[in-house]
């Protein structure tokens, strides 16, 4: 990737919030790159900073330090209305709560036409495109006359997807787009996202806590914990041969729909080694790690390359 500029490059980005215990870093010096048309998965537990990272890229939160470049151009540190408008046809976002992200007082067709009107399209054209997109996401054009509350959860998320894709962005950030949906509806939305991503050739950052969903959609996966990236690599490799103990812990905890396998696995979730770490020193995962050693609390492991496309922040990576 050295020979050309990546679509998105995040360099040592941090985001601090004021909490009850003082300042804390939701995102702590994260670097990543996304190539045009690439689907990158981002997994981690709640509070790992994965949503904040997505929001930094879309400009909904500001970096405290570090920088984010899109197609070689630095994103503004503080967005103005004009900046949001400028990036509206470049970076878009699909949210978890489609109901909360749609205006309850505007009809579906209005919600879809709005981003087009802001891009300077004529109303007639915008309406036409809105109804085309309704059909593209699997809704009938008549649905355009409805209000968000008149739609089911799955239908609302289809509208959310259409609204993100309608301006033909180059990068779509999906923040837990299916975790609020029923199993069968989840599958419909996952298929829709996958089809649209391929047809449009758009790059995607897919944020989810559901490992299987990420494994299904993403070419490459990043694993985040406490604001830092612990491991990254091709999805197949990360999920079948995890290098970082945290990834291993997540995989072991993830229930699979196979009773015999589950019975074998019962009680096999590795317990923490019980090493005591001081806050802010050493590896942030050490207190929960099943193989933590004294070095883990004295020295922070860096995210280092381990083979092709593989990075891991651990002194004692697994499987080596």
């Amino acid at each position: 990737m050295a020979d050309h500029v990546p679509l998105l490059s995040v360099e040592r980005a941090s985001c601090h919030f004021e909490g009850p215990g003082g300042r804390f870093a939701a995102v702590d010096g994260v670097s990543l790159e996304i190539a045009a048309g690439e689907v990158v998965g981002l997994v981690g537990e709640s509070g790992s900073g994965k949503s904040t990272l997505g929001r930094l890229i879309t400009g909904l939160n500001q970096c405290s330090s570090g920088s984010i470049r899109f197609a070689g151009r630095a994103l503004p540190t503080r967005y103005r209305a004009a900046d949001f408008r400028y990036y509206a046809d470049k970076i878009q976002m699909v949210f978890q709560d489609a109901y909360g992200s749609l205006n309850p007082r505007s009809r579906v067709s209005e919600a879809l036409a709005e981003p087009l009107l802001l891009q300077g399209l004529r109303p007639r054209e915008a309406q036409l495109r809105a109804s085309q997109w309704l059909e593209r996401v699997g809704l009938s054009a008549q649905m355009g006359a409805r209000f968000p509350h008149e739609l089911s959860g799955g239908q609302r998320q289809r509208v959310g997807v259409a609204r993100a894709f309608i301006n033909r962005p180059q990068l779509v950030i999906c923040d837990e787009p299916v975790s609020a949906l029923d199993v069968s509806v989840q599958a419909q939305i996952i298929n829709l996202l996958r089809d649209l991503q391929r047809e449009e050739g758009v790059a995607m950052l897919f944020i989810a806590h559901d490992l299987a969903v990420v494994r299904y959609l993403a070419d490459r996966t990043l694993v985040m914990y406490r604001g830092k990236i612990m491991e990254s690599g091709d999805s197949g490799a990360v999920f079948t041969q995890p290098r970082h103990p945290y990834t291993q812990t997540l995989l072991a905890a993830n229930p699979v729909a196979d009773p015999q396998l589950e019975r074998q696995r019962r009680g096999s979730v590795p317990a923490a080694a019980g090493i005591i770490a001081r806050e802010g020193e050493g590896c942030c995962f050490a207190p929960r790690c099943f193989q933590a050693q004294p070095r883990c609390v004295s020295e922070e492991p860096l995210l280092e390359a381990q083979g092709e496309n593989r990075r891991c922040a651990c002194h004692f990576p697994l499987g080596l």
Binding site: V183, Q188, N191, Y216, N254, P259
Partner: peptide
């Protein structure tokens, strides 16, 4: 239920869940 699924709905529900082993398009209901 899991190894001798006997109702089409159960079968469809099982098929629509993505698994950690990679598959192609999800058979959604």
């Amino acid at each position: 239920l899991f190894y001798h699924t006997a109702h089409p709905y159960t079968e469809a529900l099982r098929a629509s869940v993505p698994t950690l082993s990679h598959g192609d398009r999800l058979p959604a209901i």
